[in-house]
Amino acid sequence: MLNMAFEPVLSLIRRLQGTVSRYADFPIVQNREQMALLRELQKEMQKRDPLNTPFDQLDVVAIDLETTGFFPDKGDEIISIGAVKVSGKKVCDDQTFYSLVKHEKSLAEEIKILTGISNEQLKAAPPLPEVLHHFFHFIRDCILIAHHAGHEKNFLQRACWKSFRSPFPHRIVDISFLSRIAEPDLKHAELEEICACHAIPVVNRHHALGDALLAARVWSLYIEKVEKKGCHTLRELYERLAKSG
């Protein structure tokens, strides 16, 4: 049962073990400053104990990506990254990150309509390695959170390997893990459905920063709910999930 408790945390490590063989065709990008930052962040994260840090003391970063599609292994790419810091239950609206990502190919019409991003904007945007470098500076050694985080995990793993030949170093916690304890009836709900249930205004949907802010507010709400049910750390949350099956 204890191994089951840490499965959400360890699954990312297992997936990264296959990264080298899957992405071996990508060129190595040599940038000493970028690689030094990655090594620094890895050392910082090794010093932390996020599993046992009380939620009200845990600093996280809510993230969201807009992409050209759903399948990074088939060539879909990141076109924007949004992030906002959350300290305990406090959403830090004044500590945000947003950037478009350079993309030379024409976007599908439905993606342009959904995101409001144009081909011209992406052609003028900074390249992926530069955006990731600034993104890493912003998130530092924080745990990342996202709503239905598999999308973000897959794209960031591939982007980091493509840009730096390095696994993506950060843990990403799926907010749906909290919902299984906080609101079991909504555990598969879309972001706007959760927001509607709790009178959270839905603003800038399908904009990376707008969705990151919504995810941050849902996280803050769910932290309060899971604490009332006796879960005060990620370790306690995972143990409760394992017991509940």
Rank of each mutant, 00 (worst) to 15 (best):
A215D: 15
D73E: 13
F138A: 03
L144Q: 04
H198F: 11
T68H: 02
F135K: 05
P169K: 11
Q42K: 14
K225V: 00
K102D: 05
K187L: 11
I145W: 05
R171G: 04
W161F: 08
I113G: 03
A196L: 00
W219P: 10
C142S: 12
I63V: 15
L213Q: 09
R171Q: 13
N31S: 08
I143N: 01
R32Y: 03
L156F: 08
V202S: 01
I145D: 09
G18S: 07
A196F: 00
K85Y: 02
R171S: 13
I117T: 07
E40D: 15
V218W: 01
S179R: 12
P129H: 02
L65K: 10
W161P: 03
E227F: 00
K228A: 15
A212W: 02
A5E: 05
M1F: 00
R165G: 01
A108I: 08
S220I: 00
R180K: 14
E66G: 04
K102G: 09
L107N: 06
A125I: 11
I145R: 07
K153M: 12
D93I: 03
D56Q: 04
I139F: 06
M45R: 08
K90A: 01
R180I: 15
S21V: 15
S220L: 00
L2G: 03
Y98P: 12
K187I: 09
E109Q: 05
D141I: 12
V203F: 04
C195M: 05
V101K: 06
A62M: 06
P129M: 05
P167S: 11
R171V: 15
V9E: 14
R32A: 11
A83G: 06
F6H: 04
R180L: 09
V84I: 10
G210W: 07
L186V: 07
V9R: 15
K89S: 10
D25V: 06
F155I: 08
P201T: 07
E193A: 13
T115P: 14
L128R: 07
V131G: 13
F168L: 09
K123G: 04
Y23D: 01
I175P: 08
C92S: 02
Q57R: 08
P167E: 07
H232L: 02
A24C: 11
L122A: 07
Y238T: 02
Q46G: 05
H206L: 14
P129G: 04
I78G: 11
I143C: 05
V84E: 03
A36G: 09
R205H: 14
G18D: 14
K225R: 13
E190H: 14
G230K: 00
H198L: 02
K105Y: 02
Q57S: 06
V218C: 09
L241V: 06
F168P: 10
T96C: 13
S244C: 06
Q95K: 07
E193D: 08
Q57W: 05
L10M: 10
Q157P: 03
V84C: 04
C231V: 12
F177C: 12
D25M: 10
L114T: 15
R140Y: 05
A199D: 15
Q157M: 15
T96V: 14
E239I: 10
R180S: 10
L234F: 06
K162I: 02
H148L: 12
I117V: 15
K229F: 06
E193F: 01
A189N: 08
H137K: 10
F168H: 12
R39K: 14
A208H: 03
K228H: 12
I175F: 02
P72F: 05
